[in-house]
Write a protein that binds this DNA or RNA. Structure first.
Lengths: 210, 210
DNA sequence: CCCGGGGAAGAACATTAGTTCTATCACATT
DNA sequence: AATGTGATAGAACTAATGTTCTTCCCCGGG
């Protein structure tokens, strides 16, 4: 939440729903928060959505739904989906406990999936390097940062030299590390231990079938 | 409440608010209750308002507010996990819309996961007959009952004669049906179409990694 | 049989409300 | 100074949505 105005909007929405039983329109927000134009409200709403504070249904009147602590729903946890994995993109990892939700999607997952765990985030899987671990293209893996990893765990690793992130099974072999794809078509990668940074460990998988 | 249609509308409004967190539009009601015209919905809404079952804000979109004890809790859907699949056990399937949650586990999933879908239930997967579809032993599959299935869909079928339930890909081939395991080790099963009862279709997969 | 009322259809109408476009301004960075 | 980003304005455009009107159908009572 960057500005006080955005907190004002969020509070207004919460109050509006509480009083009227339905979400406000963009123009309700304009009037209620003393804004000057619908585009201003739209602008801030988009910011708030990208930060995961609310969700908007496009082209639907009053299509605002509050997210997060304000509308804490029992049994549902909010997990930020911070990017893709198995592509060569940089992979920022939030702090273990308190993170500022980075711009991007926020996913609701059943509490049961991350029971008690702290520092859980989501990654969209690209590619099929882990199909033998029943993780396919398009799946969302739930990662946990800052936990000890054991041989054979599926982890997201950051290769310092190559500046690449991938999802692999990890095996410590002396002072080198074997990164094993779960795909019979692909070969393991061997890297020196000091070239590897473990970003997180897979604790769950989520898939939506069309 | 004079007619059953009016009770239908009332129930729909309650469910809609529960799922989407906002009241339905007149046209939402038309579609959701199978009405033929907005004027019909308007007519019944006026009746319901005059009887005190709800309140309408004139000239306001989604200006419906339920009255009385009816209250809805938005955001969370309760999905009953009603058994295992790929074992030879009987597989009771609840009715499509209103089910009394059967004794057993209930999983709370975000509405976002099953958005709009009716008759969703969960099954714990036993065995590895679907590993090539990235569904493994211990996973929970979210099934939807009472929907049309297309060739290649992963469905839970009940074999009437054999009294067995399994999770397979389904292919209609004339008047017989091919049930295709997603496992290169296993052979397809061919059964006459009248021996098959489709219990549901996979709409999602949840896995908890130890 | 005629009639009145509850219901239903379908189209039309009038706003409401979401979205987009362009322009502007303050402020920080290069 | 040139540039880029966050934030603001105002208006226009389109789609969504509430409302109204007319016609028609079915059915029980007079």
């Amino acid at each position: 939440m960057r500005s006080v105005k955005q907190k004002l909007i969020l509070d207004f929405i919460e109050a509006f729903i509480g009083e009227r039983g339905r979400p406000p329109t963009v123009r309700d927000i304009v009037h209620g928060c003393g804004l000057s134009s619908t585009s201003v409200a739209d602008y801030h709403l988009n910011v708030l959505e990208s930060e995961g504070h609310l969700r908007r249904d496009k082209h639907v009147s009053r299509g605002i739904e509050l997210r997060g602590g304000r509308r804490a729903r029992p049994g549902v946890a909010l997990v930020p989906v911070i990017g893709h994995i198995a592509a060569g993109e940089p992979l920022p990892v939030p702090a273990s406990d308190t993170w500022s939700v980075p711009a991007g999607e926020t996913l609701e997952v059943p509490e049961a999936l991350i029971r008690g765990k702290k520092g859980v985030y989501g990654l969209r899987v690209r590619g099929n390097s882990m199909v033998d671990a029943l993780i396919g293209d398009g799946d969302i893996v739930l990662m946990q940062a800052g936990v000890s990893v054991a041989n054979g765990d599926t982890v997201a690793v950051w290769l310092l030299r190559e500046k690449e992130a991938t999802l692999k099974r990890i095996y410590h072999e002396g002072n080198r590390i074997r990164l094993q794809p779960a795909n019979s078509q692909m070969q393991p990668i061997y890297v020196p231990a000091d070239n590897v940074e473990v970003q997180g460990k897979v604790v769950g998988v989520l898939r939506l079938v069309a």
